[in-house]
Design a protein around this nucleic acid. Structure first.
Lengths: 196, 196
DNA sequence: GTTTATCTATCTATTGGTAGGTAGTTTACA
DNA sequence: TGTAAACTACCTACCAATAGATAGATAAAC
C-alpha cells in the first residue's frame, strides 16, 4: 500500500482510539516503519494529516449513505442502516467515530478540521431529517414529529452511544440506543385508529 | 480559595474544554499563579488530579440528583431536570461533560479514572431507568418501554448532544435532544383510548 | 520544631517541525 | 537513444519548546 495511505489509516485509528492529542508522528512512524520526517513529507503538519483524514471519512460516509439511499426500501430501513454505520465503525476494533473525537477539542483542534467535522455532523442531521419526512409521508413514522429535532437527536444519540460503548467496552450500549431511537419515530396504532 | 481547589477547578475546566491530553501542569500553574512543582505537591501525578476531579464531579452529580428526587413532583419533571443538568454544564462557559471527555481515551486515560467514569455513567443510566419505571407506574410514560434501554439512550443522547453543542457552539442542539427524548417516553392517547 | 506550602533548579523524554542530503524514477529533448 | 534536469520518497541530524516529574532549599504557620 502507498505510504501516505498507511499514514492516514494509522492516524485515523489513533484519532478514533485515543484522540488527536494523544498520539504523535513518532507513534505512526514506528508502526509504518519509517521516520517522522517522512511523515512530514506527506503531511507537513499534524493539522494537514487530520484534514486528510476528515476528508476521507466524509467521502466514505457520503458513499455509504448514497448506497443506503439507492437500495433501502423504506424510511425505517434507511434509518436502521444509518445507525448500522456506527455499529460497523465500532466493530472495526472498538473504534469511536473520528469526527466525534475531533469535535470535542475546541481551539485545541485546528479550525479547518473542526469546520469539516461540522459539515459531516450537519449532513447527517439533515439526511435523517429528510428520511423522517419521507417516513411521515408514507405513514411509517409519527406525523407529529419535528424532523429537524429528530435528525439532531439521532446523530447526538449515536455519537454518545459510541462513547458509552467505549467506556464499558460494550456493543449493546449502541444497540439499545438504536432500538429506542427507531421506536421513538415509529407510528403506533392504538385504539384501532391510525394516527394519520 | 484554597490552592488545591483552584487547581481542581481549572483542571476540570481544561478537561471539559480540550480534554485530558491537551493541557499541561504549566497551563494550570500560569492561571493559578504558582509553579508546576507546587501542583505536583498537591497532585503528584496528572492521574491523581484527574481522579480528584472525577470524585468531585461524582459528588456534585449525586447531590444534584438527590435534590431532584427530593423536590420533583412527577417522573416527567425528574427527567426534565436531569437533562437540565447537562444544559447547566453547557451554560458554564460552553463546557462539555468532564466524564464524557475522560471516557473517550481508552488506555490513554488511567484505568482508575475510567473506572470512576463508568460508575458515573452507569448510575445515570440506572437512575433514569428507575424514573421511567416510576413514570410507567403513574401512567405518565408509555408502558411498553424497556427502562434499561431508555436509561442508556438518555445518557448517551445527552452526552452526544453536548458534543454537538460544542461542534456548533449552539445550545439548541441540547434543547432539541431533550425535547425529543421526553417526547419519546411520554404516554400518548390516540383514537380516544389510553394505551394502558 | 515540625508541618505545610511554596520556591528554584534541574532532569529525562518527547513534541511538532526543519535542514539538507541521497538513492531511484520519470520526463524533456537534442 | 542518450543524457541532463526534475521529481519522489525517503533518510540522518538537528532544533526549540514542552511534557511530566523530582530534589532540595526556604519561609511561614501551628
Amino acid at each position: 500500500m502507498a505510504t501516505s495511505a498507511q499514514i492516514i489509516d494509522i492516524g485515523q485509528e489513533y484519532i478514533q482510539k485515543v484522540g488527536f492529542h494523544a498520539f504523535s508522528y513518532r507513534d505512526i512512524a514506528k508502526r509504518v516503519g519509517i521516520r517522522t520526517a517522512s511523515i512530514h513529507y506527506h503531511f507537513p503538519t499534524k493539522a494537514d494529516l487530520a484534514m486528510a483524514i476528515v476528508e476521507r471519512v466524509r467521502e466514505a460516509t457520503s458513499a455509504a449513505i448514497a448506497d443506503i439511499d439507492a437500495s433501502a426500501r423504506s424510511a425505517g430501513e434507511r434509518l436502521r442502516r444509518y445507525c448500522g454505520l456506527f455499529l460497523r465503525t465500532w466493530g472495526q476494533g472498538d473504534r469511536l467515530c473520528p469526527m466525534c473525537m475531533l469535535a470535542m477539542g475546541q481551539d485545541a483542534i485546528p479550525e479547518e478540521v473542526r469546520s469539516g467535522v461540522r459539515d459531516f455532523w450537519q449532513s447527517g442531521e439533515s439526511w435523517v431529517a429528510q428520511t423522517v419526512r419521507d417516513g411521515q409521508a408514507s405513514g411509517e413514522f409519527r406525523p407529529d414529529l419535528d424532523p429537524r429535532t429528530v435528525g439532531r437527536t439521532f446523530v447526538a444519540a449515536m455519537e454518545g452511544a459510541m462513547v458509552a460503548a467505549r467506556a464499558f467496552t460494550d456493543r449493546t450500549r449502541i444497540e439499545d440506543v438504536i432500538d429506542h431511537l427507531i421506536d421513538s419515530v415509529t407510528a403506533r396504532r392504538t385504539g384501532g385508529a391510525t394516527a394519520v
